[in-house]
């Protein structure tokens, strides 16, 4: 494992910790899209099926279980916690899951490395992860006030895949020049979707202003 990959994983983990912290400490999930969070549960469930078939490392297994556990608990808080669920911006979080999930599934059926259940679902999870942030970005754009924790959460979540891109470049040159178009292009799309957000996040940070996205 190289330093970029580790930095990516840590950024990803930190983003989730920040989100859980926000929910648990402030008993509020304002500005957080349940649609996006549910899509991440689907992403992790379909990607980590190999937990049962293949052992890679203690680190790998632990992180997979942490990502599964935390993503499920975030959805649980937003749907069922009697205080938290009342802070959910349901009327503004209107993006349809299936608009994203169905095309990704069809694409995974068409374009994959190997036609097996595990491989197609893994590919589906890669495609779905790339676009799963969209409901969250739409919700942010509709929010008048984006609190710091939410802004930092989205920033770190975007930074994680950008670090993975660097990791793939590094791996390409250090490990037999393996070409992996599916995750590479998906990761590139995923990072590009954040470009606009990154721009306004960094601008607000530099000017010491409150983050707000233009409508």
């Amino acid at each position: 494992m190289n330093v970029f990959r580790l930095a990516g994983d840590m950024t990803h983990l930190l983003s989730i910790i920040i989100l859980l912290l926000k929910i648990r400490a402030t008993k509020s999930c304002t500005g957080i899209s349940l649609k996006t969070q549910e899509l991440y549960v689907i992403v992790f469930l379909t990607r980590y099926l190999d937990l049962f078939t293949k052992y890679i490392s203690f680190y790998n297994t632990t992180m997979k279980l942490v990502f599964l556990g935390t993503s499920i608990s975030i959805v649980w808080y937003m749907r069922y916690h009697k205080v938290v669920k009342q802070t959910y911006n349901k009327d503004q979080d209107t993006f349809r899951h299936y608009f994203l999930a169905i095309p990704c599934f069809l694409l995974a059926l068409l374009i994959h490395h190997e036609f097996t259940v595990i491989e197609v679902l893994w590919t589906f999870s890669i495609y779905l992860e790339a676009v799963a942030i969209l409901p969250q970005l739409v919700l942010l754009q509709r929010s008048r006030n984006i609190d710091n924790l939410t802004g930092n959460y989205v920033f770190l979540l975007g930074a994680y895949r950008a670090l993975y891109l660097v990791n793939w470049v590094y791996r390409y040159f250090t490990e037999n020049h393996l070409v992996r178009w599916i995750p590479w292009l998906s990761g590139l799309v995923q990072t590009t979707l954040y470009a606009d957000f990154f721009y306004y996040y960094i601008k607000s940070w530099k000017n010491n202003e409150k983050l707000q996205l233009p409508a």
Partner: peptide, 10 residues
């Protein structure tokens, strides 16, 4: 295909 198909990632 080689084993390092990025399946060792998260």
């Amino acid at each position: 295909a080689k084993t390092s198909s990025l399946k060792d990632e998260l």
